[in-house]
């Protein structure tokens, strides 16, 4: 009896801890380091459900146990906390506790080049049998829903920004439009030849690159960090080999076209660059515009 009560108490505590974990992610803004802010609404739903379940669970602690099955239809087999052995219960609750401990104790780290290397490649490989463009071939710009979002652009804003890309002499790769600009430039590098570009990213290197080359990259998050993919532009500068991977650079330069493993890719001929601190929003999220 006492054991069952204690378990109900434990469950109530865990529900509340999960609830507070989600609330903490929202209040600190850390949530954007785990998932695309577009899906924030779903985690608000989680906060409400957890709160509700916590309250229900609270009343269960002092309930008489024999009532437990009273409202159950036959065939009810949910775990009333009396089926498993003590060591087994201990393991079960430790597993549930584990993400809470690491979640509260450790702050989210930003993905680095070692993960990028596992994600495949940014630059075309020599055995590539497609000549179209780079590996990352995305078509963004639309989304199914109209959601409040950090990275929400109206149709007009989006069109304006894309027009700006074609017309202006200096292309600024701002976070909100990075993915779309990147796609346009790597789709047809020739169209942008000779234009000036300003971009921030971290240094990433691949096998087969020369000493004056590096890739200035960013992670693109579609849904959550687990689905991150890497996008980046090749850059040529003197002493590129002096910058180790994961160094954040801000770079200005001129866009040019080069042939890499038989594929045309854009390249930045760097004019000036400086080492910068890792930005507060290191990730790129696909642009959303409304179509409704």
């Amino acid at each position: 009896m006492v054991g069952a009560r204690f378990q109900h108490f434990l469950k109530a505590i865990l529900l509340m801890a999960f609830d507070l974990f989600f609330i903490k992610l929202h209040t600190t803004g850390d949530i954007s380091k785990y998932i695309n802010p577009k899906y924030e609404n779903m985690s608000f739903v989680a906060i409400w459900i957890f709160t509700l379940l916590f309250l229900i669970q609270l009343f269960r602690i002092w309930e008489n146990n024999r009532n437990e099955h009273a409202y159950c239809p036959p065939g009810c087999n949910h775990d009333h906390g009396d089926s498993a052995s003590v060591p087994r219960k201990l393991v079960n609750y430790s597993i549930i506790l584990f993400p809470l401990v690491t979640g509260f104790a450790l702050s989210p780290s930003v993905l680095d080049a070692s993960i990028a290397a596992n994600k495949g490649t940014v630059l075309p490989q020599s055995n590539s049998n497609s000549y179209e463009e780079e590996l990352m071939e995305y078509e963004f710009g639309y989304d199914e829903e109209v959601i409040d979002n950090d990275n929400f652009l109206s149709d007009k804003e989006y069109d304006d920004k894309m027009k700006k890309l074609e017309q202006s002499e200096l292309i600024e790769m701002k976070e909100d439009i990075f993915a779309s600009y990147y796609e346009a430039i790597s789709d047809s590098p020739v169209n942008f030849q000779g234009k000036k570009i300003k971009v921030q990213g971290f240094v990433y290197k691949e096998k087969g690159m020369r000493g004056n080359q590096l890739v200035l990259s960013r992670f693109l998050i579609t849904h959550c960090i687990a689905d991150a993919s890497i996008i980046g532009l090749m850059a040529e500068l003197e002493k590129a080999n002096e910058y180790p991977e994961d160094t954040w650079l801000e770079m200005e330069g001129t866009l040019d076209v080069m042939i890499y493993n038989g594929v045309e890719i854009p390249v930045i001929k760097a004019v000036n660059w400086k080492v910068i601190e890792e930005p507060t929003s290191p990730y790129i999220y696909p642009v959303l515009t409304k179509i409704l």
Binding site: F18, F22, L25, I31, K33, Y34, I35, Y39, M42, S43, V45, A46, I49, F50, P99, T102, G103, L106, P108, S109, L111, D112, S114, I115, H223, C224, I225, A226
Partner: peptide, 24 residues
């Protein structure tokens, strides 16, 4: 280690993404 921190971040992000759907 850094690699555990990265692992932990990915691990939590999968959970944060999945938990609302599991709750529903």
């Amino acid at each position: 280690s850094d690699s555990f921190l990265q692992l932990n971040t990915i691990f939590l992000s999968i959970l944060i993404e999945a938990i609302p759907f599991v709750l529903i």
